[in-house]
Amino acid sequence: MAYAYLFKYIIIGDTGVGKSCLLLQFTDKRFQPVHDLTIGVEFGARMITIDGKQIKLQIWDTAGQESFRSITRSYYRGAAGALLVYDITRRDTFNHLTTWLEDARQHSNSNMVIMLIGNKSDLESRREVKKEEGEAFAREHGLIFMETSAKTASNVEEAFINTAKEIYEKIQEGVFDINNEANGIKIGPQHAATNSTLSGSQGGQQAGGGCC
């Protein structure tokens, strides 16, 4: 299907916070408590519409365990957005955010939009991290923030779409050079010619291959 843009996302965060479940809820609109542990990387994709434009999100879901960190780093390359996920019922996953953020900042391009996600909001009775704490962390580090539940689907759409909106706005403002694939954005095959003016640079000819 034709798209105006393709954005690459990466989902990061400690093991067991619900990264794969968020992805599945977003791409397939279902919650599957029984699933294989992610080893290495998994993928998902979905089309969304922003400002009347079709945008394809290509999402990389990573392994959370620390030993995989060295491999995860290579997935940051060329990501336009990152969902940094913690589990509101496990404080340690919140405490590790700084390390994740450092990694993300160090290995991604500086314009990457990061959305902080406190997942498992359905488990209110087991909550260990207050919503205000998540908000404060996000404010302090310049991130967007949302609490989600991959189980009930609450805010899942919004999390992915708001991140895309932010990326889209950055494109409009000319912050992203959309002709540089390293930014995690690609212009769709049909739109290459019309959209190339957006970046104000040298056209979108490299998107002509129609790949991805």
Partner: peptide
């Protein structure tokens, strides 16, 4: 702690680990 979190995520469709 990590092992415990992973126990139900191994071959969840196999009768032994379901």
């Amino acid at each position: 702690d990590i092992i415990e979190k992973d126990l139900h995520r191994q071959f969840p469709f196999h009768e032994m680990f379901a």
